[in-house]
């Protein structure tokens, strides 16, 4: 195991496995968020299920935390190795096929880490959300995005970053694990493309829903009539 971790390929494999675990979480999280479109009961019931089932919640949290840490530590160490490997730059260097997603992944991942911290302080602990209601994520989402427009914009911007990260990361993980069928061109990556677009649109749908009024405060009668 120590040899595995000492190798750059080993560390990359760690990044791939933890990355896919986190992508799996994101798909689940995004799908659960869309429950908000069905009204307060569904999403709050799901939240209650998680919070009253510690045998599900805590292992999931621990796996996620371990994944974030391993993913970030490997990424940091590998990018240091690569920076040393190319310490001297060309006067002229034209990249030919590298995507925006692959070129931005390092610096945008720092933004993602920042987003996760802000997000946990916002909707999980409520520290950044005045009027936070424990156990009522529906109300929190509505209050959050209605009263904190800046936050809504920040979330929407960060979802583009999430999409880009997953577009490169998911494809890269599959490649790193050696699981993909050979494709002639690096831009052909159907699975990663679908997952990335689904995450971007699916996550963005919730703040957009609140901002456009499709997701309304729970007491709103027009809404309740609609939901039944």
């Amino acid at each position: 195991m120590a040899l595995f971790w000492a190798s750059t390929v080993g560390k990359k494999l760690v990044m791939a496995v933890t990355g896919l675990l986190m992508a799996g979480f994101l798909v689940t999280h995004m799908t659960a968020n869309l429950l908000a479109y069905l009204g307060p009961d569904e999403i709050n019931a799901y939240s209650r299920f998680l919070h009253t089932t510690p045998e599900v919640l805590w292992p999931a949290r621990l796996v996620l935390l371990a994944s974030v840490v391993l993913h970030a530590v490997s990424a940091y160490q590998l990018s240091r190795t690569s920076a040393r490997a190319r310490s001297e730059d060309y006067a002229v260097h034209r990249l030919q096929v590298a995507t925006i997603a692959s070129r931005t992944i390092r610096w945008f991942s720092v933004l993602l880490a920042l987003f996760i911290v802000i997000h946990l302080l916002h909707f999980t602990s409520g520290t950044l959300l005045p009027g936070f209601l424990e156990g009522n994520p529906y109300a929190n989402i509505v209050t959050g995005f209605q009263t904190q427009r800046g936050m809504a914009v920040f979330y929407l911007a960060m979802m583009v970053v999430v999409g880009l990260h997953v577009y490169h990361g998911a494809w890269s993980s599959i490649r790193t694990l050696g699981l993909s069928r050979p494709k002639a061109h690096p831009l052909v990556r159907p699975i990663a493309t679908i997952v990335a677009i689904a995450l971007w649109l699916g996550f963005s749908a919730v703040p957009v829903g609140v901002l456009t009024g499709a997701i309304r405060p729970a007491g709103d009668t027009t809404y309740t009539a609609h939901a039944r």
Binding site: T8, L78, S82, A85, Q96, V97, H168, R175
Partner: peptide, 10 residues
């Protein structure tokens, strides 16, 4: 002292 592959495809 080579670097690590990040699948740029270059």
């Amino acid at each position: 002292s080579f670097g690590n592959c990040t699948w740029f495809g270059e």
